[in-house]
Design a protein around this nucleic acid. Structure first.
Lengths: 194, 194
DNA sequence: AAAAAAAGAATGAACGTTCATTTTTTAGTA
DNA sequence: TACTAAAAAATGAACGTTCATTCTTTTTTT
């Protein structure tokens, strides 16, 4: 196998091991030696690919985050109507959170603890811009309530994180019907009509 | 000072130190000796009040959680109409999350990492029952959408956690107007009317 | 044969927890 | 009330372990 491919494989194994260990045991119980063992690599090898533990976690976060936003906007086109665009993006995000739950769970943990440093967190937020632009357009066109983007996010996208967690914890299953109900709840919370 | 009071004070200091350290540095960076130092106590003393670190964290979680639900339902009365009851509980929860943000931030971290063990987590959920009962009544009366309580929670209560985090991170401030906008978003996402 | 990648063993520091001792509180006696 | 002895509470130092990271050597690739 080519050297480069082997390197990529090893790096990916490390990133994947980090995600799985943090998901199952929490960041506090995820040590470098456990990551190394799960990735079938020497602890010392990690330091050929990452500066230190913080760097490993930051890079893992950014990789997962951009996988998420790439998926969310993959077939979005800014020419769409506001409602169609929102429906599309919302469903892509729902899809991602429910299918790629390993990634989604990891992001939920990162977003709620200080395990990620602030620069990486800021970097991760940038990728959501197309959705924010869509919302601004929706407000101008009088289709979406004229409220802060934080509110719009809190009431349409953030609930999906909670539902994903509940689903993983096994207390609840989101079927197709419920996803549609969730979409209706999201849309009715932000649409402007009477 | 009475012996009992002194004990209570010390226990409270330990619980408070745990909350503050976990909030500021994360669970992974919160050690027993740091907790002891912040509570102005010897590390050994912690073990007079708590079995071990996990027990300290579990107990802290349950204490904060019941403070939260006590506040939420303090002036709620099951005789109220569905809409009035919901409005009241929602505003109490919003109040708590924005004023007692130390507690709220701690709970948000607990709810998104495996730092709390499963029995304590289950215990913490029980206290929300009055809200679930209210929702069931609302569904029967045709006032609230006939959807899962998980969805109702995700779209009305959970967004407040996100807004609280954003506010603490300083990227956003929720004023009185915005709280009312948030309430309208929450209510319009679950109320039943064409 | 030289260079790069990977390894295991070793590092000091920090961890959660316990131990032996000291300090504080309590309760009984004068 | 003042004194004292037993009990309880609290301590700092020390325990064995594990941590993140580095060092030296071996293996693999060029």
């Amino acid at each position: 196998m080519a050297k480069l491919q082997k390197s990529i494989d090893k790096r990916n194994a490390l990133v994947k091991a980090t995600i799985q260990l943090v998901n199952n045991n929490g960041f506090h119980a995820t040590s470098m030696s456990k990551i190394a063992k799960m990735a079938k690599v020497s602890p010392a090898t990690i330091y050929l690919y990452f500066e230190n533990k913080q760097d490993l976690v930051n890079q893992t976060y950014l990789e997962v985050k951009s996988g998420y936003t790439d998926y969310a906007f993959a077939n979005y086109n800014p020419e769409m109507t506001v409602e169609a665009g929102f429906r599309l993006i919302w469903h892509r995000i729902a899809d991602f959170k429910l299918k790629e739950c390993e990634s989604a769970l990891f992001l939920a943990q990162c977003d709620n603890t200080p395990m990620i440093d602030e620069p990486s967190r800021q970097e991760g937020i940038k990728h959501l811009q197309p959705l924010l632009d869509l919302w601004e357009r929706g407000k101008k066109e009088g289709i979406i309530k004229p409220i802060s983007n934080y509110l719009l996010y809190a009431y349409t996208i953030n609930p999906l994180s909670f539902l994903m967690s509940a689903q993983i914890r096994g207390t609840f299953v989101l079927d197709k019907n419920q996803i549609e109900e969730a979409y209706q709840a999201a849309w009715s919370s932000i649409k402007l009509c009477n």
